[in-house]
């Protein structure tokens, strides 16, 4: 039946290059489709209505795959969580990416879910965001300006502005996420909650990273997921840990500080009290694991 209130999609595009894709975006009112695992569910739930144009980006080869150049690793927006899980070279240089991918949904979801979709969807519980924040990653955004593709780079820690919200402008395509290849001695860990190992939207997730030398942790990064409107760099916890000998007292102080960093809510998945408890337990577990290995 013809619907009057829902104008519906007027054009479908499946560009084969970034240049073509950003020209479609320049027309305005475009809905981007990658793996579809968030889009389908959110359209069905009424949280997203389609723009005039539906643009399927899955045919853009330039957006696929992992590469390394000049000491930086680049992960294309269309790289799936399965691609990350199966990439032995990537797991060798950045084990925390495989460890996180391994906790992500089910294999069928991982086969479709892309890194770009996980970042732009900007869920406070988005799992791949946590290790990428630990790695000080940047995202690259492309748009069409003055007859050419123009790109800008945004630090991932400045990318998220609220649940489902980012600094990406409507005419921008997320093309890749990049980060410096971690130096020797860099340790990073990820943990997420949930009664089942997989298919669990994180009640709380946490990540810890730093360089451990002679028992002292430096360049500390602490990231907490699902305890604030966006995934969070936990500044108080980082300060409590930076340059300290990673012993029992430091671990307890870091875990306590992390609880001060977060502002969890009560919702259907868990109470704020329980989320605070999980933050403390995860922090202790992750820091102990870093100290012991």
């Amino acid at each position: 039946m013809e619907s009057i209130t829902q104008p519906g999609i007027e054009a479908y595009e499946a560009p084969a290059s970034i240049a073509d894709a950003v020209q479609v975006l320049a027309r305005g009112d475009v809905t981007v489709l990658a793996g579809g695992t968030d889009l389908t569910v959110q359209v069905d739930a009424g949280r997203i209505t389609y723009g005039k144009t539906l643009m399927n980006i899955r045919r853009i080869a330039e957006l696929q795959g992992v590469s390394e150049a000049g000491g930086r690793i680049s992960i294309g927006a269309l790289t799936t969580v399965t691609n990350i899980l199966d990439d032995d070279a990537l797991a060798q240089s950045v084990p925390v990416l495989r460890a996180t991918a391994d906790r992500f949904a089910s294999m069928q979801i991982r086969n479709a879910a892309t890194i770009g979709g996980n970042l732009v969807n900007a869920s406070p519980a988005g799992d791949m965001i946590v290790p990428l924040l630990l790695l000080d990653a940047d995202v690259e955004l492309a748009s069409w300006r003055d007859g050419a593709v123009s790109t800008r780079s945004v630090a991932l820690k400045d990318f998220f502005t609220g649940p489902g919200k980012t600094v990406r402008a409507d005419n921008e395509l997320l093309t890749r996420v990049t980060f410096a290849k971690p130096a020797a001695g860099f340790a990073a860990r990820f943990e997420k909650s949930g009664p089942r190992p997989a298919l669990e939207i994180s009640t709380v997730s946490a990540g810890v990273a730093g360089t451990l030398e002679n028992g002292v942790l430096s360049n500390v990064r602490v990231v907490l997921g699902a305890v604030a409107p966006t995934p969070l760099r936990a500044a108080k916890a980082e300060a409590a840990l930076e340059g300290k000998t990673l012993d029992g007292d430091t671990i307890a102080a870091g875990a306590a500080a992390a609880c001060d960093d977060c502002t969890p809510i009560d919702d259907v998945r868990a109470s704020a009290w329980y989320r605070h408890h999980l933050v403390r337990v995860f922090m202790e577990r992750l820091l102990t694991d870093v100290a012991e290995n």
């Binding site: 489709l33 579809g36 389908t40 399927n56 899955r58 399965t82 069928q108 979801i109 479709a112």
Partner: peptide, 19 residues
């Protein structure tokens, strides 16, 4: 709803037919 697409399994309820 699992089906195989180009050698990978996916949930067909989430994949767009146009793809």
């Amino acid at each position: 709803c699992t089906v195989d697409v180009d050698g990978e399994t996916i949930n067909s309820c989430l994949m767009y037919a146009v793809d």
